[in-house]
Write a protein that binds this DNA or RNA. Structure first.
Length: 640
DNA sequence: GGGAGAGACGTTTTT
DNA sequence: CGTCTCTCCC
């Protein structure tokens, strides 16, 4: 298929696909067909003889990357199967793993699993004002990198920050690991410090989707990678919802000014939502002050759709209401995969998931526990890593203290000191301690722990020839805490000939779970996760003050509060524009917005929902202010 | 390294 | 409201 098959020459999509300028910015509202346009642009590039590996298509979330990847595969243009849609993080990981880059950067791109950072935090806590403080400072450290605007990014402001940064980098350097938050800053640093590096010219064309979700560091990475290339960015400042990682709608707004001569295109025809939803979305987003006025264009062929706003007495009634509504839909022939439920708090999602499960409606929650939630599972997983690589310092350090609250940080510090002075690795030092070739005061419990670990490793060694027995040894059947991890191992066992293959497969699935191309269930997820999706039946639940918008930190200034409020409004905007109208196939496009009057005080505290009054054990909730901002087309709220 | 009591804090996300 | 974390004491 030629790139312009069926494309009207006057259409924006044609303009985007064919834009000859080296810098192209596309502002595309929800449902306006930006992926379609991007796909055609890639097709045109390939047809003009650009090699697939010279085209970089990146986006921010894995779901979006996967989607883009699949879309690119479907192109049917020769070479399209070699195209990659990837996240900026995976690209950073790939580049930083190259030998010459590794040497230039001087860091090991071995990301820490979240549970492994617990040991690190304990080690840093003593000298840096406690665990809470350290956690905050670490966040600041990655944020400082991410906000990097000038030439000297990442410089700590005060003494405490400097101290933490120095200790943290020492720790990561010694343990040969890296925080995920460091991937992009180090990529930027590598590109900045090595202007002659081949990576600057690796791509001839960059296509960046969801640009509004990139923070300054990520934008800078794109700028370096694309300096010698043609760059097309696509996004929507009205859908910028990642301020907590320092992404800001101004990023995409300012981009045009930074690149003179940049082609600037807008997609405003909403080919997804029913007209009522488009009008509601327009009314809602127009309330935001810090924004260039712009409206989505409703298409009459989509029909008005069906919108309901429902208030129920208690949180569990909301679940019941949604469940019965869904039962009705399913019996009318709707497939579960056509339904998505958006909730911004896990507590609001739990009763809904439970109600669906009880009613035997296939449902999948993106809030559900993962394989590494239990401590036992974390330890076994770390043990697995250590088994395959005794010199995995992060895994060893974690395991040496994972059975006690303080991670034995004091005695471990003595071992580390010895290592730094002698050049021994922690594994070597621990073995010397066991063999009495080395003595260090106050390390007895640590050595005892190490001996337990080596015993466990020995037991694994004995069965490593057979993957099934290996799994039975590492993740024995019948342990509830290991059940999920074991199930994962058994799935990954297929095609794994050695424990090493098995770990690779499990790592892959844990850190970047496969996103199945087809879904069979009703999906329950956060508003953030819903970005990029669309569905004929969309429920937005838990629309109360304190969740949407979330409670404001009393420390915030008025500006900060306003910014948070506007972002929450954008989040709701993203949510309601997930509705897909397909009237020809009996799918008018249905949006159900619901909110409870009360929830238990416990739930309210747990979800950080601010409430003003209470009645017995229940907190009285206020309807989200956004419900009043949906304009005259929105239906009146009804009791459910 | 463990236990008791006081105080802080709670969301959304990226390999 | 519950859970985590810190401090103080043995």
């Amino acid at each position: 298929m030629a790139w312009d098959t069926g494309l009207d020459k006057g259409s924006v999509a044609y303009g985007i696909a064919a834009a000859p300028e080296p810098r192209v910015r596309v502002i595309a509202g929800p449902g306006t067909g930006k992926s379609f346009a991007m796909k055609r642009r890639v097709a045109k590039l390939l047809e003009s003889g650009i090699a697939p590996k010279e085209v970089l298509a990146v986006t921010f979330t894995r779901v979006a990357a996967e989607d883009l990847h699949r879309e690119l595969q479907k192109l049917g243009t020769p070479g399209c199967e070699e195209l990659e849609g990837q996240t900026l993080h995976s690209l950073a990981m790939r580049i930083l793993s190259r030998k010459h880059v590794l040497e230039a950067v001087g860091r090991f791109p071995r990301p820490l699993n979240t549970f492994e950072t617990k040991a690190m935090i304990c080690d840093l806590a003593g000298d840096n004002g406690g665990k809470r403080k350290v956690k905050k400072l670490i966040q600041g450290y990655t944020a400082a990198w991410a906000q990097s605007q000038g030439d000297e990014p990442g410089f700590a402001k005060d003494g405490a920050e400097k101290k933490l940064q120095a200790d943290l980098l020492d720790w990561l350097d010694f343990h040969q690991g890296m925080l995920i938050g460091e991937l992009i800053p180090y990529l930027v640093r590598y590109l900045k410090d090595n202007p002659a590096a081949a990576e600057h010219n690796e791509f001839k064309h960059l296509l960046v989707d969801e640009f509004q979700d990139l923070n300054k560091a990520e934008q800078t990475a794109i700028a370096y990678l694309g300096a010698a290339a043609e760059v097309c960015i696509v996004g929507d400042d009205d859908q910028s919802i990642y301020s907590f990682k320092n992404a800001h709608p101004d990023g995409i707004r300012e981009w045009k000014g930074i690149h003179p001569g940049c082609a600037d295109l807008k997609m405003v025809d909403c080919h997804r939502c029913p007209t009522t939803v488009v009008e509601m979305a327009n009314a809602l987003i127009a309330v935001n002050k810090n924004r260039t006025p712009r409206a989505l264009n409703a298409l009459a062929v989509k029909g008005p759709g069906e919108v309901a706003i429902v208030q129920v007495p208690y949180l569990h009634n909301e679940a019941e209401w949604i469940k019965s509504k869904i039962e009705g839909l399913l019996s009318a022939g709707v497939h579960p995969s056509e339904i998505i439920i958006l909730v911004q708090r896990a507590v609001a999602g739990k009763p809904i998931l439970q109600a669906l499960r009880v009613a035997e409606i296939p449902a999948k929650s993106y809030y559900e526990e993962s394989q590494l939630d239990s401590e036992t599972a974390q330890m076994r997983f770390a043990l697995f890593k250590l088994f395959l690589n005794n010199e995995d310092r992060v895994a060893l350090r974690y395991l040496l203290g994972s059975d006690v609250d303080d991670f034995r940080c004091k005695s471990y510090a003595r071992v580390r000191k010895h290592c730094e002075n002698s050049g021994d690795s922690p594994w070597q030092a621990m073995n010397k301690l066991v063999d009495d070739a080395l003595t260090l005061a106050h390390t007895k419990p640590l050595v005892a722990r190490f001996q337990l670990l080596t015993e466990a490793l020995g037991e694994l060694e004995a069965v490593k020839g057979d993957v099934q027995s290996f799994i039975d040894q590492l993740l024995p059947d019948g342990d509830d805490e290991l059940a999920e991890l074991r199930a994962l191992a058994l799935v990954q066992m297929e095609g794994a000939e050695t424990p090493a293959d098995l770990l690779t497969g499990m790592m892959q699935e844990i850190t970047q779970p496969d996103i199945p191309p087809t879904v069979e269930e009703v999906r329950l997820m956060s508003l953030h996760k819903s970005k990029g999706l669309s569905s004929p039946y969309v429920f937005v639940a838990g629309c109360v003050e304190g969740i949407l918008p979330p409670a404001f930190d009393p420390e915030w200034s008025k500006d900060e509060k306003d910014a948070a409020l506007e972002e929450a409004r954008r989040l709701f905007y993203v949510g309601i524009t997930r509705v897909k109208a397909d009237p020809e196939n009996g799918r008018p496009g249905s949006l159900f917005i619901s909110y409870p009057q009360q929830m238990t005080i416990k739930d309210a505290y747990g979800a950080n929902v601010a409430f003003k009054t209470q009645s017995g054990p229940m907190a009285n909730l206020l309807p989200s202010r956004f419900l009043n901002e949906l304009g005259p087309t929105a239906p009146k709220a009804v009791a459910g």
